[in-house]
Nucleic acid binder design. Structure first.
Length: 587
RNA sequence: GCCCCCAUCGUCUAGCGGCCCAGGACACCGCCCUUUCACGGCGGGUACGCCGGUUCGAAUCCGGUUGGGGGUGCCA
């Protein structure tokens, strides 16, 4: 073949034990222990006999915390009996370490380049939920090796995002941890050490070729495979010296082993790659800068990550990582190869991976548009996972309780903003008035509806008005339009011209006049009295349908055709301001 | 090109060989409720890509095919 070396049929035996169900795609339920899986059974967790409730508090200390009080490390790990025949390790390149009971350690490792993406949230959420479900550790690591593209702004955005979402991390930026530092830019010595050890082993070799040379050789050989061809694998001293004499600087390449590499993917089942299709890859640049291919596995190894849950785009780099892990174990850097689970893409319009170009991709925009973190997270969780056959709305706590990585489906999901809205709306309706008021205030301030700080009178008015508004908004940002008329100064009050044209006009003037007369005569200014007076004057008096009767009044007083309930609104506005606005509408 | 992944309503999913002429949610279409809006209620249409095989029985297992996606870097 391309490397001119014989290829043994298969290094790996087939599926391990006779009792191990190896259904592709729907693997057995993962029980939190390395290499162990059991056949899926329907929601056995619902019958759990321990008091799981109150054990975890996913919302505590958003933004990361040190306190592990109350968290049971490795909580679920010993719950189920081990099945003697169930072993996940199936190959010489096994991704599992049989017999261990290591507590779960997962990580989120974003690159701080550009604006954080909703796909990133989904990955973070599944990692977080997996960690919390198993009472494990959620590590947050910043992969800022690319100095050109990494920015502080992006880093801040990611941290803000995680804090807003309430996905707290146990180790990482701001909280530190036993494997600090958690910024790759501060871990250069570790990569240099790893590279030096690897270079001393037989697993790597120095390569002097240019890309062009390798590509030309591939082409000349009529190879179907692209990428490096292994030319420098067995260089003679003379060849090496000749290259050096030419002034070439070598890079370090990893020597892919022969045969095939198989792993049991946590979401996809068994995946196999023939290594003839996995070219020897570079670990560093000629100037010595380590590449992602090196730093990512080295950090995972050093941080003792047990499960790597990441995007499907990394699927094809997994055989390289598994092979590298073998070398890292050999040189004493890695203790064990993690298990891998490749999450499906979040797709955008037109069946393409949701790209940064899509406005829907920008994660922080959801916060600014008034989505609830619990709503967004709930929706994102639905992309690839279901808590039950007939349920879509759930809390983070419920997700933690029920989340199984092996329940995640492998097919890519389209991001549907309408459903996202609907799920968010469901969470809005679950909030108490106090809670929703609290959350709406920043939006009201930003929109200039409320002053900052809020004065006492406005605070009081808001407290009275929110019950009317809370049930009719689906996003926090929608409150301003509904409340503005109550807080605006009279001389700044404006009536929407389009709405006025539609319902006031000539036909509306008599209606407003009649309303003014009826309300001006009112001895008490209450919702009930207002309703009775308007009902009598307009519906009975003028013979109007309620819709036509109250429309003009609504626009005159609230400025818009869409408002909180009219009679309550009038009461809150007060007699003087209400009558004044009716007067103004009359011209 | 080559390699890998994926395949149930428009969308997200349930389904783990008989409970399925396929369930839920969003969207859509009617109707009801209603002072606008937002809720809420009732009803409706719409899906197992295709071809083989295994089986008494297949959406479910196997093979193929087609279609989609991803990868194929001294990017991450």
């Amino acid at each position: 073949m391309d490397r001119d070396r014989p290829r043994p049929a298969r290094l790996q035996p087939g599926p391990p034990g006779p009792d191990l169900p190896q259904r592709r795609g729907r693997p057995g339920r993962y029980d939190g222990r390395h290499g162990l899986r059991r056949p899926r059974t329907r929601r056995p967790r619902l019958q759990r006999d321990d008091a799981a409730a109150g054990r975890r508090h996913p919302h505590r200390h958003p933004g990361g915390c040190r306190s592990h009080a109350g968290r049971r490390r490795g909580g679920d790990l010993d719950r189920r009996p081990r099945h003697p025949h169930e072993q996940g390790g199936s190959t010489s390149m096994s991704t599992t370490d049989q017999g261990t009971t290591t507590p779960v350690r997962v990580r989120m490792a974003p690159s701080p380049t550009g604006s954080p993406h909703v796909g990133m949230i989904r990955t973070a959420l599944f990692n977080w939920a997996f960690a919390r479900h198993h009472g494990g550790t959620f590590v947050f690591r910043i992969e800022d090796t690319d100095k050109e593209r990494s920015t502080d702004e992006s880093l801040r955005s990611i941290l803000d995002l995680m804090r807003w979402l309430g996905l707290d991390w146990d180790e990482g930026p701001e909280v530190g941890g036993p494997h600090a530092p958690y910024f790759q830019s501060e871990r250069g010595d570790k990569y240099a050490d790893a590279l030096a050890l690897l270079r001393e082993s037989s697993r790597t070799y120095d390569c002097y070729c240019t890309n062009e040379e390798a590509a030309a050789r591939r082409k000349a050989a009529g190879s179907k495979v692209q990428g490096y061809d292994g030319f420098c694998r067995e260089l003679s001293d003379e060849q090496r010296e000749a290259f050096i004499a030419e002034g070439r600087k070598p890079i370090v390449r990893f020597r892919m082993p022969e045969g095939s590499i198989t792993w049991h993917d946590l979401v996809r089942g068994e995946v196999t790659f023939e290594t003839e299709f996995v070219p020897d890859f570079a670990l560093c640049r000629a100037n010595g800068d380590p590449l992602y291919t090196l730093v990512n596995p080295v950090d995972d190894a050093l941080m003792e990550i047990t499960h790597v849950l990441r995007g499907e785009d990394l699927l094809s780099s997994t055989p390289r990582q598994i092979a590298l892990y073998e070398a890292l174990k050999e040189v004493g850097i890695a203790k064990a190869t993690p298990q891998f689970g490749h999450l499906p893409y979040v797709m955008g319009e037109g069946n393409k991976k949701l790209s940064k170009r899509d406005p829907e991709a920008h994660a922080l925009a959801y916060r600014d548009q008034g989505y609830l973190p619990e709503g967004l997270l709930n929706y994102l969780a639905l992309l690839g996972w279901a808590i039950a056959a007939d349920r879509d709305v759930f809390t983070l706590e419920e997700m933690v309780e029920a989340f199984e990585i092996t329940d995640v489906v492998a097919n890519p999901a389209r991001f549907d903003i309408k459903k996202c809205d609907a799920i968010n709306a469901a969470h809005m309706r679950r909030l108490s008035i106090e809670d929703i008021t609290h959350r709406v205030i920043p939006f009201l301030k930003a929109d200039g509806v409320l002053s900052d700080p809020v004065n006492d009178a406005d605070a009081q008015l808001l407290e009275l008005a929110m019950p009317l508004v809370a049930e009719r908004i689906n996003k926090l940002s929608e409150a301003s339009a509904l409340l503005e008329f109550l807080f605006v100064d009279e001389d700044a009050f404006e009536v929407d011209p389009d709405d006025a044209a539609k319902v006031i006009g000539e036909a509306g003037i008599p209606v407003i006049q009649a309303s003014y007369d009826a309300l001006a005569a009112l001895p008490t200014w209450s919702t009930e009295a207002i309703q009775a007076a308007l009902q009598a004057a307009l519906v009975e008096g003028l013979g109007l349908k309620p819709r036509n009767a109250f429309g003009p009044v609504r626009v005159a007083v609230t400025g818009r055709r869409i408002s909180p309930p009219l009679f309550e609104s009038l009461e809150l506005l007060g007699r003087e301001r209400s009558l004044g606005r009716l007067q103004r509408a009359l011209g």
